[in-house]
Amino acid sequence: MSLKDQITEDMKSAMRAKEAEKLGTIRLLTAAMKQKEVDERVELTDTMVLAIIEKMIKQRKDSITQFEAGGRQDLADKEKAELAILSAYMPAGLSDAELQAEVTAAVAASGAAGPQDMGKVMAILKPKLAGRADMTAVSGLVKAALTH
């Protein structure tokens, strides 16, 4: 079953179980997926769906930070609940050791010699690690590997 089908099934079961919060979050996700399909006239693949979910997760994290800084814990809690629902669709993340191994392999494969080659290394890593690792953290690891 594709990820898109899984999300649709989860939406139906949330409706049946009258889980309003989960249903609302899944509907936001399906709306974002439909928007991408319509805008780009494509049928979404699992990779594309993961990219949408990843973007929504990043938005939730940013919102949580802003709400907590503004003293709006009620809104931060709502965002945290949505974040938990969205995170359930992401594949299991890589461990630090696995991430470091991927970065080392990509640096070797690209023949990168210094920080100026960071783009080459990230171009190799991005498709491999999409949805499985925080790309900001990966970027930091690549920068560290290239400056030593």
Rank of each mutant, 00 (worst) to 15 (best):
L3P: 00
L3A: 02
D5R: 14
Q6G: 07
E9P: 01
D10Q: 06
M11Y: 10
K12R: 14
K12N: 15
S13M: 13
M15S: 11
K18M: 15
E19V: 03
E19S: 10
A20N: 12
G24L: 01
I26A: 00
R27S: 11
R27D: 07
L28H: 03
L29H: 02
A31I: 07
A32C: 04
Q35D: 11
K36W: 00
K36P: 00
V38I: 08
E40H: 06
R41K: 14
R41L: 10
R41G: 06
E43F: 09
L44Y: 06
A51V: 06
A51K: 08
I52S: 04
I53W: 00
I53V: 09
E54G: 11
E54Q: 13
M56S: 05
K58N: 12
K58V: 12
R60V: 04
R60C: 09
K61E: 14
S63Y: 13
S63A: 15
S63G: 13
I64R: 05
T65S: 15
T65G: 12
F67D: 12
E68I: 13
G70Q: 15
G70C: 14
G71Y: 10
G71W: 12
Q73I: 15
Q73L: 15
D74R: 10
L75P: 09
D77Q: 12
D77W: 07
E82Y: 09
L83E: 07
A84P: 04
A84W: 10
I85L: 05
L86R: 05
L86S: 03
S87W: 07
G93S: 15
D96Q: 14
D96H: 11
D96R: 13
A97I: 09
E98L: 07
Q100K: 10
E102N: 05
V103L: 03
V107Y: 00
A109G: 01
S110V: 02
G111F: 00
A112M: 02
G114P: 01
Q116I: 07
M118Q: 11
M118I: 09
G119E: 11
V121M: 03
V121N: 00
M122D: 03
A123F: 06
A123N: 08
K126Y: 04
K126S: 08
P127H: 03
K128V: 04
L129M: 05
G131W: 02
R132E: 01
R132S: 02
D134S: 05
M135L: 14
T136H: 10
A137K: 14
A137I: 13
V138T: 05
S139Q: 12
S139P: 07
S139L: 10
G140P: 06
L141R: 08
L146T: 06
